[in-house]
Write a protein that binds this DNA or RNA. Structure first.
Lengths: 229, 229
DNA sequence: TAGATTGTTAATCGATTAACAATC
DNA sequence: TAGATTGTTAATCGATTAACAATC
């Protein structure tokens, strides 16, 4: 008989969690398309990972599949939903109502309404520009930054999203931490420091582009090597 | 005597390249602040990686430092600039002039003008909405999507940026590939498939948020375990 | 039953860290 | 010289792949 564990699921590697989110999206789409079962090969093909890795990722949490058949789409979707705690809404405040901040907000409002696998909800925006205070973006109000410490607990926000210029990012991060935020997504193109109890995720859009540019350049050189000389 | 290599630098792991970009940004900032030298410890601290890894990453390309002293800030900056091929501008077209596309364009125009370590330049936008055609975003024109195949070679664009809704992403990717694009950044929240000769980078903003939400949730549970029971 | 596909183990691969001799 | 810090090697760690027995 297996020992009853204190923690419902094992602590899972970062990379695995990211893939689970991607699997779930595909499963959700397949379920809408009335698909009943899906094999690790099909799921792998649709998500761009290997079949063996799909099976290994899923096996961390139990035996979800049927040998010779595959995985039941709806069942696996529901299980991943549970594993990823998607029934729990996570409320976020966004600091920096510039064009990126507003774009993210618009996107978030639509996404939260449309996609049952998406559980992050932006509930307030903050900015220092007096001209922006009080404006509504798709129903979400822009508050002055000085109200951050008061609004965060009032709204029950636990996530902070930083979309201010690089020079202001660290200061905003400090204020989010002071306000009691548990996790931060940083869209500013600069590393920020937060205490270890605060989870930090960097989403540096320009980094992705520069990185891709580098890969393109080195591939081009390879091709030139191969053909030219 | 060492053999002269056909390729100027070794082929370098993905993760290393990403860190080099981050080192470079810090070095650029330090150089502006008149810093002369920087140790692997300092560079590590400012970028959030370990000192040993900083040294190992840099050692791939030669001996840039001085034992007992550290790295010359300006020299290392210039070397990384060369390694990352930043003297070469990479021109990009962006498809999907919605709020995210417009935000990225604004951001890109400013960044390209201000930051000498940034070499990706958006040169045209594309959309299918007739109401948007002909509009200018910070000096960049919005063209109808059907002109993509003609404009890409005309403008010398080699990178494509996808900011359309998920359902349209694959079709847009196909058209970018047909137009001769060498690399794609996909901001749509769905995996896309491209031929192996095309470099692909996924920048799924909602994935970052969901992933952070998961981490926050599991940490919270850990804390509750630790204290509560 | 035969064919298909999972769950799982062992092998491989790659990336990071630790340690330290070299040397400024 | 003594102290500091690099460049580099070996050890460790972790993640992915390959392979296959289990089993539907």
């Amino acid at each position: 008989m297996k020992e009853v564990m204190a923690v419902p699921w094992p602590k899972i590697a970062d990379a695995v969690v990211r893939r689970l989110v991607i699997y779930l999206r595909v499963l959700d789409r397949e379920a809408r398309a009335q698909e009943r079962t899906i094999s690790s090969y099909q799921l792998a093909q649709k998500t761009g990972v290997s079949p063996a890795l799909v099976r290994k990722d899923l096996a961390w949490f139990g035996e979800f599949g049927t040998r010779g058949v595959g995985y039941d789409v709806a069942y696996l979707r529901d299980q991943l939903h549970k594993i990823l705690r998607l029934e729990q809404e996570v409320r976020a405040v966004l600091v920096g109502a510039g064009s990126l901040g507003i774009a993210l907000t618009r996107y978030n409002v639509r996404r939260y309404a449309d996609d049952p696998t998406f559980n992050v909800r932006i509930v307030a925006l903050f900015d220092t520009d007096p001209g922006k205070i009080g404006l509504m973006i798709d129903g979400i109000e822009i508050f002055p930054l000085r109200l951050l410490g008061e609004k965060v607990p009032e709204l029950g926000a636990t996530m902070g999203i930083i979309t201010v210029p690089a020079y202001a990012a660290q200061q905003v991060a400090d204020e989010l931490v002071k306000a009691g935020i548990e996790g931060i997504v940083n869209f500013a193109p600069t590393p920020i420091h937060v205490p270890p109890r605060v989870a930090l995720q960097t989403a540096d859009l320009s980094l992705e582009m520069q990185y891709l540019a580098y890969i393109m350049m080195s591939r081009r050189e390879e091709r030139e090597e191969a053909s030219g000389r």
